[in-house]
């Protein structure tokens, strides 16, 4: 198991957010974390990465207790892509080079630069290397931060709504890319998502969060009409378009 979460709980001083979270994922898994706004999706990702400190529970990365690893060690194992990005005035190459931060002692080595180059190629950003990040479109910026996470050479990717505010084409491009990377690099990804259809197209594991607890988790079998209706408090229908399942509000 690349990631095992046991009995994780997190609360802000004013309100509890996550209660009794247990799950694990293996290499090659694309886990979609689903649920309404405020269900605790982002909080869960941040707790795995120790951006937030869970009060109870353990997170194991390949069997290592995350709370015993330094930030730097954790950064070598987990790549994280936040929901919002700053428009920094740096080149794409520099922005991706930042992913080598956990490895760099004083200055970036040739090896670091080669890894950056590789990540840029994987995401099709070669020709953008010297463009400024704050002049890119939303889809391009999203690819830059994913490239940065890849440059960390992680075993696990945590992506917080990576298709958020992208157009239809870019939603598919980015999702397909994530799936391809997981397969090629034998990583695992935990992806907070809003779009159920996108999730069902690309993910192979699903977690439905409701009020900070896991309502249902597993493979495609959990994506039933009843489960989705209770999690989103909305009547829905699931239709098949060829072999593609589609969720629509009824």
């Amino acid at each position: 198991m690349i990631l095992t979460v046991e009995g994780l709980e997190f609360e802000y001083p004013s309100r509890p957010v996550l209660k009794d979270i247990n799950f694990s994922i293996a290499n090659g898994d694309f886990l979609a974390v689903l649920g309404i706004n405020g269900a605790g999706k982002s909080t869960l990702l941040k707790c795995i990465n120790r951006i937030l400190q869970p009060q109870v529970g353990t997170v194991l990365i390949r069997g290592d207790d995350a709370s015993r690893l330094s930030r730097r060690e954790l950064a070598k194992r987990i790549g994280y892509v936040a929901q919002h990005h700053e428009r920094t005035r740096t080149t794409v190459f520099d922005a991706v080079l930042l992913g080598r931060k956990p490895y760099i002692q004083w200055e970036a080595s040739t090896k670091d630069m080669e890894i950056v180059q590789e990540a840029l190629t994987t995401l099709g950003l070669d020709s953008y290397a010297l463009r400024y990040v704050d002049e890119l479109s939303g889809g391009e910026r999203q690819k830059v931060v994913i490239a940065r996470a890849l440059a960390q050479q992680p075993q696990l990717l945590l992506l917080d709504e990576p298709t958020h505010s992208l157009d239809l084409k870019n939603q598919f491009d980015v999702s397909r890319l994530i799936k391809r990377i997981i397969k090629e690099e034998q990583l695992a990804a935990v992806v907070a998502m809003h779009d159920l259809n996108l999730a069902m197209r690309f993910a192979n594991r699903f977690m439905l969060l409701k009020d900070g607890v896991i309502f249902a988790a597993g493979g495609f079998e959990v994506m039933t009409q009843e489960n989705i209706e209770s999690v989103y408090s909305l009547p829905v229908k699931i239709k098949q378009f060829g072999d593609i399942p589609v969720v629509i509000p009824a």
Binding site: I51, S70, R71, Y80, H84, E86, L98, G99, K101
Partner: peptide, 20 residues
């Protein structure tokens, strides 16, 4: 200097890149 560069991308991203 690398920590400051990471911090420019946001506090959470900086943490995820190993910055205290």
């Amino acid at each position: 200097r690398w920590d400051y560069n990471a911090l420019d991308s946001g506090e959470e991203t900086a943490k995820s890149l190993g910055v205290n």
